[in-house]
Amino acid sequence: MKQKKENTTEKLKIGLYGISGCAGCLLTVIYEDCFTEINELVDIKAFPLIKEDNYKGPLDYCFIEGTVCFDEDIITLKKLRKRSKYIVALGACSHVGGVPSMKNFLNKDKVMRFVYPKYNHLKSTNPTPINKHIKVDYYLPQCPPSKKEILEFVQAITSNRPFRLTEDPVCFECRKKGNPCLLNQGQLCLGPITRGGCDALCPTNDTICYGCRGPCPDANIHAFKELLKEKGYTQKELVAKMQTFAGLQFKEFEEEKSTWLEK
């Protein structure tokens, strides 16, 4: 009994917040097989998506989902940073910018007029991942993040183990599963330059890899470009694929000045 009491007092205080985004990553956490186990290990103090009255005091770990699209987002982020010991970027949007970050490479006004033809009062800014505004301690990539990885992370923080993302490319897991290579079939798959850890979810289902987990730290983008040139793809097609999720990070990776946690 004594042990149990100690456990309840020792539980880490966790908050799950979302800024501009589809809330899909937070939804992944609520899935039955994931949520019950997380709830057992940590104390979920704040979760505005499913809770009405949320704890407003200091937190140990704060999970943040979404991209910074408005100035209000930056204010919320800075408040959360002050309140919590560690910030965890949850999902591709907060990790690398996600789909909204595509706007960085397009004409802002054109995009604005295309999506909202009537509302002229709206302001349009460049969507950026959260680490451009606050210090981020951990990243849980992928769109949506894998339940396995979320659980692994929560297990690691509750038992004081270090948590590290894999540095192997998607290809390694894909090949181990025995999938036929989509690149060899002539499709533009970003597997060789994308960070693994997703169990090659897309290539296993015969869909190309879009690079939602950002570049693999050891990627050989130069050789990959040469290969695509040989196969008859243009630079534009490759860049368009890379910009689907992690365009900003791929760009920084090529320029070799990555600000992301592990290079």
């Binding site: 192997d168 290809c171 090949r175 181990k176 290579c181 060789p192 330059i193 050989n220 290969l227």
Partner: peptide
């Protein structure tokens, strides 16, 4: 080696 993508296909197969 410069052409290698480090995709590990060779060792897996």
């Amino acid at each position: 080696a410069n052409k290698c993508l480090s995709c590990s296909a060779c060792t897996v197969v």
